[in-house]
Design a protein around this nucleic acid. Structure first.
Lengths: 159, 159
DNA sequence: TATTGTTATACTCTATAACTATA
DNA sequence: TATAGTTATAGAGTATAACAATA
């Protein structure tokens, strides 16, 4: 985020929170996500990862063996963006493309040992950062947040 | 979103949801936000608004009388982006800059009658879209989601 | 000296279309 | 004829620094 926005004042005046926008779920979702993204991206910086590349690496490390098309659908990213993400990770020797035996057009994303090692360390840091992020939220509430978000996140996109 | 991603398949294979990423709160937050953003932006399209400009208009219409600096902090956007957002709304006669009597450097954002009218119609549509978006979520869970998001959204950014 | 709004610019992200090789 | 991956490119969004007016 911009350095011109001072950390202390980042909340903005209470007057604005009292407005309609302050209780709008979409707005809260956007703001919560922006803050979480900021935090997690800065947590991942030492490993030269961002949330996007971290997610791809995580799916590779979990041996989910996704094709690029599946990654595109799951991460809600254009296939061409997946290409760029994998290219960068592959250049660093963290993941590899494996030909799909059942469809010679498709590539399956797999993880290298180096990728697993780096992921393990990054994941630990992300876990800590998330715990900090969610610190102070009642466990029951947090549980409901996850349930609700999962419902939202899993909703079919009907354009 | 890319048209190449078919609506039906947008969930991706269940196998991927079972991975670590699928239960990661930050990931769920990002995905839920992406889907909500898509939906609300397409809802706002008839009024030539996006979530960003809609939020600015909403704060103006609520007579929150924010300065541009306050908007920047509240919306987590760079001051220069606020300039562009207000410029566009002002050109359409929906908002206006009013000099702050107590600080001649600052501008206060106010709403025109046309702005209020357009906002009222847009807000109704957004309300419907959100209701659809959150349809099927247990009211108690939704309540907790709002509480949790508000906590996250209001967290001070400590870089 | 510091802050508000502004401009300019570079950079990243996202969207789109076209192409190839397979199906 | 449709799909998986790739490439190229244009547009939107974002970050950064510098500036004039004011505090």
């Amino acid at each position: 985020m911009p350095e011109s926005v001072s950390p202390r004042a980042a909340l903005g005046p209470a007057r604005l929170w009292d407005s309609t926008v302050g209780s709008d779920t979409s707005f809260l979702l956007a703001r919560a996500n922006a803050l979480s993204l900021l935090r997690i991206n800065s947590t991942l910086a030492p490993w030269e990862l961002k949330v996007r590349s971290y997610s791809v690496l995580a799916l590779a490390a979990a041996d989910a063996r996704p094709t690029q098309r599946e990654l595109s659908e799951f991460l809600q990213l254009d296939p061409s963006q997946i290409v760029a993400l994998i290219d960068a990770l592959e250049r660093r020797g963290l993941v590899a493309r494996e030909p799909d035996p059942s469809d010679r057009r498709a590539n399956i994303l797999v993880c290298t040992d180096a990728g697993r090692e780096l992921y393990a360390r990054a994941q630990a840091a992300v876990g800590l950062a998330e715990a900090e992020l969610f610190d102070g939220i009642d466990p029951g509430v947090l549980d409901a947040v996850v349930t609700g978000l999962r419902h939202l996140a899993a909703a079919p996109t009907r354009d």
